[in-house]
Design a binder for these strands. Structure first.
Length: 652
DNA sequence: CTAGGGTTAG
């Protein structure tokens, strides 16, 4: 049954609307107008008014009301409206809002609503708000002005504004609106929570998030799938993975693919890449199909783990299932190919893209730098600037680290200044860290030290660690000690730092000092990640640790290693030099791959440590003697070995 | 009655 609303005045008319749904209209006192009861309606007409564009009457886009004419109107203007008692009157001046495509059109439409006094009447107010606040062409400020003008905003109006603020990166202010709505006793509904939870997630505001979770339960929204998914996301962003999982578990069969995606990305954030891929494989057990979002999460895990095979198979299934791929997933694919040792494949995807954003460029620039193709990285960066994209501080981290990889000191300093002065970006600790690395790579250690001491912000532990590692090579024990003590002050000492310093003492035959630092590892309860090397053979990943003999082919591999040593001796290389643990595991991985792959295929090794120079030398020679391309990803970058040479030009 | 959740480098 339709509700009758009104009567209220529209211009010279008094209108009563047969409203399709219940609405309480209260006019603010200054807008109240008395109905002239002394005048009998002359005629009744029907009138068409624009409908909220997304309502269930979408088809016509127009709402039918009845109009009673209380005054005799002679002007031709009005006659246009009132032609025939039975015909529908089309108020041509009113453009349906869903046809509005620009702020200019919107202003006109809004003016008409204002003139008719409809601007503060639900559902028009909400419709105006959501059009203006949420469309691509809209304006948050304009929407805010409309919103503030509402005497009695409703839940819907608040929801729209909260959502718009979150979209405009104003999460704090969005939460403020939520607070305001509670204070004004306007009840949040099942739509409110996903928006405000997202705001908390973006702010990593775990306390606020828990409060909201409580509110949602209290208001009885403990069955809502959208709210649950938002909660998984919230706890994931706050690194409370147990809580994310708990919600996920609780949802049982109500889980949707979005629940999985949110959980997968939570695992990724914690760097639980193996578990992430396990979960990804389980999606299909629930009769759900992995979609783009969940595949983005899985691809990111593949990138981190260097799993080319699995990354490729995700790519295939994307190509099978989607006619076009969105920019986010394309970026993930580029990143995956870059990090799994196929930069050419990554570039192929990149070159074919017609839409590129900062993240795409960022993935390519850091990928190219990783493969020691720094010139190209800078080329891509300058293309990006020519495209008119505005660089942000994150992309400058990539650009600067590309410069430091390639020892391009002047270029790096130029970029640093360009960032500060042309693009008005204040350098952060990471940028200074890159500069420090740049100086170190160029062998200007004293300048690096001067820089790190005089930089205007607190240096990161990584920057001090760079200094410490550099000392390892040039043997400056004084500098090493001061870098180490800085790390101590920051409470950021790790096992690797202790090893470096201790080895340096040992080199100087200061045995007591060496032992003292070694003891620190135990005292501080530091654990060193076990070094391993991985290689993919026939789609299966094989992982080896140093002196590994615990795998089926171990005996054959030992034989192979013996032969490899023998061959290298002809090249004048004594393999006894190679004693480091990563060297050992890498040797085994290479031997295993040489034995089990075709003689023309490229060997791809993934190791979690940094390659030492002996290991590097060894691999160079193997690539020459066995005429095999070997690509090694160590924890920082790639080395392409071919015929005795490495892409890194012996600088890493 | 209108609207909504999950996705990317360093």
């Amino acid at each position: 049954m339709a509700n009758k609303v009104g009567p209220f005045w529209v211009g010279p008319f008094c209108i009563s609307l047969l409203h399709p749904y219940p609405i309480a209209i209260k006019h603010p006192p200054h807008k109240q107008r008395t109905l002239r009861t002394d005048l009998q309606p002359l005629h009744h007409f029907n009138i068409l008014l624009p409908l909220p564009s997304s309502s269930h009457h979408k088809g016509n886009g127009i709402m039918v009301g009845s109009l009673a004419l209380h005054q005799h109107l002679a002007s031709p203007y009005h006659h246009n409206y009132l032609k025939d008692q039975n015909s529908l009157i089309q108020p041509t001046c009113l453009v349906p809002l869903h046809q509005v495509k620009s702020m200019e059109d919107f202003r006109k439409a809004h003016a008409q609503f204002l003139k008719l006094g409809l601007d503060c009447i639900p559902p028009y107010a909400g419709e105006l708000l959501s059009a203006c606040a949420l469309s691509a062409w809209g304006s948050l400020d304009y929407a805010l002005a409309i919103f503030l003008n509402l005497e009695e905003p409703r839940t819907f109006d608040y929801n729209v504004m909260i959502r718009a603020k979150v979209n405009h990166d104003q999460s704090k202010s969005a939460l403020q609106l939520y607070k305001e709505m509670i204070e004004r006793s306007i009840n949040p509904d099942n739509f409110t929570f996903p928006f405000v939870l997202k705001a908390c997630a973006l702010l990593s505001d775990i306390r606020g998030g828990i409060q909201l979770h409580g509110h949602a339960i209290k208001l009885g929204f403990d069955e809502d799938v959208f709210i649950h998914n938002s909660l998984i996301n919230l706890y994931g962003k706050c690194r409370k993975i147990e809580l994310s999982y708990k919600i996920f578990e609780l949802m049982g069969s109500n889980r949707t693919i979005a629940s999985w995606s949110a959980l997968l990305s939570a695992y990724n954030r914690m760097n639980f890449c193996v578990d992430c891929l396990h979960l990804f494989a389980k999606i299909s057990c629930e009769k759900l199909k992995p979609d783009e979002s969940s595949m983005v999460a899985a691809l990111s895990s593949c990138s981190n783990l260097g799993l080319l095979g699995q990354g490729r198979s995700i790519h295939c299934s994307l190509l099978r299932n989607y006619p076009t791929l969105n920019i986010i997933i394309q970026t993930s694919l580029i990143d995956m190919y870059m990090k799994c040792g196929q930069p050419d494949k990554g570039m192929l995807i990149f070159d074919k893209l017609h839409e590129k954003n900062l993240w795409t460029y960022s993935a390519v620039i850091s990928g190219l730098a990783m493969h020691n193709n720094c010139k190209k990285a800078l080329q891509v960066f300058s293309d990006m600037l020519n495209q008119g994209l505005k660089p942000d501080e994150a992309i400058y981290v990539n650009v600067l680290s590309a410069c430091s990889h390639a020892m391009m000191v002047e270029e790096g300093l130029k970029c640093f200044n360009q960032m500060r002065f042309d693009h008005q970006i204040k350098p952060n600790a990471q940028h200074y860290g890159c500069l420090v690395d740049l100086m170190i790579c160029a062998g200007r250690l004293d300048e690096a030290y001067e820089l790190i001491q005089n930089m205007p912000i607190e240096p990161t532990d990584a920057a001090w660690r760079s200094i410490l590692s550099a000392c390892k090579i040039n043997g400056d024990i004084k500098l090493a000690e001061s870098a180490y003590s800085k790390l101590e002050q920051m409470d950021a000492v790790n096992a690797g730092d202790c090893v470096i310093l201790s080895n340096m003492y040992a080199e100087l035959q200061r045995w007591e000092d060496a032992a003292e630092v070694r003891k620190e590892i135990v005292n501080r309860g530091l654990v060193q990640a076990p070094g391993f090397s991985q290689v993919e053979v026939k789609g299966k990943i094989h992982t080896f640790v140093s002196h590994d003999k615990s795998f089926p082919q171990s005996d054959e591999v030992q034989e192979m290693l013996y032969q490899m040593d023998w061959q290298l001796r002809f090249e004048g290389y004594a393999t006894d030099n190679l004693r480091s643990s990563e060297g050992q595991s890498q040797k085994i991985a290479i031997a295993f791959a040489l034995m089990n792959t075709s003689s023309v295929s490229t060997i791809r090794i993934f190791t979690n440590l940094r390659m030492c120079s002996e290991c590097h030398k060894y691999t160079e020679l193997i690539s020459k003697v066995f005429e095999r391309d070997i690509i090694v990803r160590d924890r920082r970058r790639f080395h392409h070995f071919r015929l005795g040479l490495c892409s890194c030009d012996n600088c890493w």
